[in-house]
Amino acid sequence: MPSARNIALTVHELEEGEFYWVLMEAVEDVPGETTHVYTPLEAAPEPYATYSNALVAGVAVMRRLFGPDGKTR
């Protein structure tokens, strides 16, 4: 069974009223540390009008990439 990937979803407002989702993957885990180093995995090509719309779109991409129960495909 493949191990779980450490994926983060965030939303950035790059210009006022323009929201982009960004998926990032942890590339370095240090045992005993609570911080992680992330690298961008995928990002919205076009902005969304609201934070919530960008967030929902990002979750949809996560589901497409990793399945509804979080398993890698």
Results as ranks from 00 to 15, higher is better:
G17L: 01
V61G: 03
H12F: 14
F19K: 01
I7C: 09
P40M: 06
G67I: 01
P40I: 06
F19W: 07
S52A: 11
R73E: 12
N53Y: 00
T34L: 14
L65R: 14
I7K: 06
A49R: 06
P47M: 07
P68V: 10
F19E: 00
Y48E: 01
T35L: 10
F19S: 00
D69G: 05
A43D: 08
V11I: 14
P45G: 05
V59E: 08
P31T: 03
R73H: 10
R63D: 12
E42L: 09
P2Y: 06
N6W: 13
N6Q: 11
K71I: 09
P47A: 04
A4G: 09
G17P: 07
R63A: 08
D69H: 08
Y51W: 12
T39G: 08
A26T: 09
P47T: 05
A8I: 02
P45V: 05
A49Y: 01
A4D: 12
E15R: 14
Y38W: 01
P40D: 03
V30K: 11
T34W: 14
P45L: 11
T34D: 13
R64Y: 09
M24P: 02
V61R: 11
L41E: 09
A54R: 01
M62A: 07
M62Y: 07
L55H: 05
L55C: 07
D29N: 05
V11H: 01
G70S: 08
L23F: 03
P68E: 11
R5P: 02
N53M: 01
N53K: 03
E15N: 05
R5K: 13
G67Y: 04
R73A: 12
P47R: 02
D69P: 01
W21Q: 00
E18N: 08
V61F: 03
T39A: 15
Y51Q: 07
V11A: 02
